[in-house]
Design a binder for these strands. Sequence first.
DNA 1: CATTTCCTCCGAAACGTTTTGGATAACTTA
DNA 2: TAAGTTATCCAAAACGTTTCGGAGGAAATG
Lengths: 336, 336
Amino acid sequence: MVTIKDIAKAAGVSVTTVSRALNGYSDVNEKTRKKISDIARELNYSPNTLARGLVMKRSKSIGIIVSGLTEASRKDNFTLEVLSGVNDVISERDYDLVLFSTTTTKQREKTYSQLCRERRVDGAILHGIKMDDPYLKEVIDSDIPCVLIDIPIETETVGYVSTDNALGAKKAVQFLIDQGHTNIAMMNGHDRAYVSIKRLEGYAEALSEAGLPLKKDWIVDGGFSEEKAQEEAVKLLTQHPDISAIFCASDLMALGVMKAAKELDIDIPTELSVMGYDDILLASYTHPALTTVAQNIYQLGYQSANLLIDMLEEKTQSRACILDTEIAIRETTGKK
Amino acid sequence: MVTIKDIAKAAGVSVTTVSRALNGYSDVNEKTRKKISDIARELNYSPNTLARGLVMKRSKSIGIIVSGLTEASRKDNFTLEVLSGVNDVISERDYDLVLFSTTTTKQREKTYSQLCRERRVDGAILHGIKMDDPYLKEVIDSDIPCVLIDIPIETETVGYVSTDNALGAKKAVQFLIDQGHTNIAMMNGHDRAYVSIKRLEGYAEALSEAGLPLKKDWIVDGGFSEEKAQEEAVKLLTQHPDISAIFCASDLMALGVMKAAKELDIDIPTELSVMGYDDILLASYTHPALTTVAQNIYQLGYQSANLLIDMLEEKTQSRACILDTEIAIRETTGKK
DNA sequence: CATTTCCTCCGAAACGTTTTGGATAACTTA
DNA sequence: TAAGTTATCCAAAACGTTTCGGAGGAAATG
């Protein structure tokens, strides 16, 4: 592999000059620079980022830590969309992306900050991490710059980007209320997810503003899983047949609810309205197509990466970013 | 950041000893080793992979080069599944994964081999690359070990993993024939895709073995796009109303065909049978659910990564791997 | 006792860059 | 003409590891 030394020899200059020429410093004659870059091209030279990173103490690479690449998450392709957004920024701004996946099954033996430190990434984006993840705290307390997706923590070195989950949920429930529904249940995820907490808040707020009672029995946890949600929905709907709409904290759970309705022979949307959250790909392909709160996951990734790199390059003060949501009205909701 | 030197000082030994202790060499006393690793843990030491990579001339990381992360590919989440499979191997075998995405839009200014050389990845997996991609040839001709997904090229440094596309297609068409169909059209992708070529072969073979004629007019290209397939299918079905089954080279195109049928008010499966290829997530959620040739994309990724690392560690002779497919019978195909 | 072997350790070089702090020569200015 | 500027270049140190070639002493062997 050809190094800076080979170029120096070929050009009859020192390595210093080659380095400075290739990096665009002004203290090198244009003629020499031309000669050097010609030779570099000719020799098919690629700078060794390892060596560079070693001396510069930064690698120009960021890590993305995602959870559950392995498993069910294939149904929502959140991860892919986030990745897609992140990746676009990365290549625009000339960074590299290294992927860390936390295999939840076999408890990852290395902590997140260890992963980052070993690979010498300049910063990290965390996605799909539970709030009670012990490693989360550790990486936040470390000095590694990071951006959290959907976990609102802001410190000197950590920022976050999220959607306004409470507002999104509120608007969704308000929409159901506007359609004439008064008996609105909620299929939530679990209380270790920030989004669950906020979406519940929005649900409660919308009800109370409309003067509707909040019934504890009508709020169940589907654990963000299609199957669990289906089970829970069957129970819920048989116990409380007067429920006319269910607001779900995720599309996947909404799919479960739809299956439950089918199982119980309840027609959607005439007998039951279902509202999802996320707008995953499947949402527009189900039958009937799912009305849901659309969040732009690609943007979530895109903004995260931009925020992180801004932080790294000290181009920003603000370390929080809230994105908008809107309701995608499809076929699972109807007038009451 | 704490280095090997700090540990050496703290333990009162040389850096050599620290290095050898931590790397499990036998020429260090167990007591010293214990002392050293205790101190390392205490100081929260992480080895600097950049420095290590520099001297060892290998980074213990592999690159994955995917195309079209940015765009439409979000519908099939092939990329995610491949990634998932690759990632599992990576973490099992203690490598790291760096993601290169070729933004097809803005022509990537760096070639694949440049990307690999700069980042000093030990090898690369290529997925979703077209056969006529100029950079493909370049990376194959370079000395970078790589594994291609669905492109059958085998050299000293490159291997591939793929499914038996001809056989898969043949079985699919045979299934349609067994159901009584004789007028079977094909919606192909485009001829720069290896899979298209092979799937067409399988289609032709099944027909000829059954003594059925191969009609050129009945084979159209949908460019692997849902919209294009829909257009083409409308044309095809209006021109040739006697077609009773369409074999599609991808599920996404099958979705397009289904939309076309709806547009033309043709019922599936009573009037028209549709067979897909891939078994993407959507396939089981469409209405009616799509019968298709299921290939295990996760496995594709998993085997690729294993193959690549085997090659890197010189643990294998064979550099090709063909995976099985099977037909997932759902609701879009019926008896004729 | 002399020699060999084994165990444990270490100094120094090497990997490919960037950067610091000049050095040299050619111009400018006073 | 002397002093200051400017343009262009370079030697050497540094980054944090691994590894080569030995060194010193203790134990084993003859």
